[in-house]
C-alpha cells in the first residue's frame, strides 16, 4: 500500500510541476473547455472576419453615406466657419459656456493635449523631453488673437506635425477644449491687477 501512496505522491508532484501555480506568467492563451460556447459565430468590435477581403469585421462606410443624425450641415458648429467662409469668433450657436462646459474642456485637454502642449499650454509637455521640439506655446500674441474657429479647425484636421484629433474628440468636446485653451491663455497672461484685491493675499501678492 505504501507504494501506491508513494506513486500517488509522485504523480501529484509531477502534475504540480507541470501545471505550476496560480498566477504564473504564460504566453499561451487560456484554455477554453467548450470553445463553441466561448467563441460564438458573431462579429465583435475590432474583430476579424475571413469573409471580407481586408480581413476586418468592422466595415468602412461606403462613400457618400450619411448616418442618421450625422448630416453635420451646421458649418459653424462642425467646421468652425461662418456663412461667408471666415472663422467663427467666440462659440458657435448652441453652446453655452458654463462651469460644467469648462470642466469638460479641462478634462479633455488634460487627456489629449497635455502630453505635448503641457498642463499650462506653454508647449512644454512630456514629449518635449523626447524630441518633440516644435510644440508652440498658446500664450503668444499669434495664438491669443487666432479666431476660435481656427483653433477648432486645428483640433479637427491637425496642423504641421500635429495630426487630427477628430477621432478622439467629439465636435462639442473640441469646442470645450477651445474654451479651456482660452482660459489657460487668460491665466498665463494674467496681471496682478486682474486679481481682485480681496483675493491677492491668498496668492501671496501685494
Amino acid at each position: 500500500m505504501r507504494y501506491v501512496y508513494f506513486a500517488t505522491f509522485l504523480l501529484t508532484a509531477l502534475a504540480v510541476g507541470i501545471l505550476g501555480f496560480r498566477g504564473c506568467t504564460s504566453q499561451r492563451p487560456p484554455l477554453e473547455v467548450f470553445p463553441d460556447m466561448d467563441r460564438q459565430p458573431h462579429y465583435l468590435a475590432q474583430g476579424a472576419s475571413p469573409f471580407f477581403a481586408d480581413g476586418r469585421a468592422d466595415r468602412p462606410l461606403p462613400p457618400g453615406v450619411v448616418a442618421r443624425g450625422e448630416l453635420r450641415a451646421n458649418a459653424s458648429f462642425y467646421e468652425g466657419k461662418t456663412a461667408n467662409g471666415g472663422w467663427v469668433i467666440g462659440m458657435p450657436e448652441g453652446i453655452t459656456v458654463d462651469a460644467q462646459f469648462m470642466k469638460r474642456g479641462r478634462d479633455r485637454y488634460q487627456i489629449y493635449c497635455t502630453p505635448c502642449h503641457g498642463a499650462l499650454g506653454d508647449g512644454h509637455g512630456i514629449t518635449k523631453l523626447y524630441g518633440m521640439g516644435a510644440t508652440p506655446t498658446y500664450n503668444d500674441d499669434r495664438l491669443v488673437k487666432m479666431a476660435d474657429g481656427e483653433l477648432f479647425n486645428t483640433i479637427t484636421h491637425g496642423k504641421n506635425t500635429m495630426m487630427s484629433y477628430a477621432d478622439k474628440l467629439e465636435p462639442s468636446d473640441r469646442w470645450a477644449v477651445v474654451a479651456y485653451v482660452r482660459a489657460l491663455q487668460r491665466a498665463q497672461r494674467g496681471k496682478v491687477e486682474d486679481v481682485p484685491a480681496s483675493h491677492r493675499a491668498e496668492l501671496g501678492i501685494q
Binding site: R22, C24, T25, Q27, P29, P30, L31
Partner: peptide
C-alpha cells in the same frame, strides 16, 4: 479562471 486566465501575457 484564477489559474486558467491569470498570468496570460501574450
Amino acid at each position: 479562471p484564477k489559474y486558467i486566465r491569470v498570468g496570460y501575457a501574450p
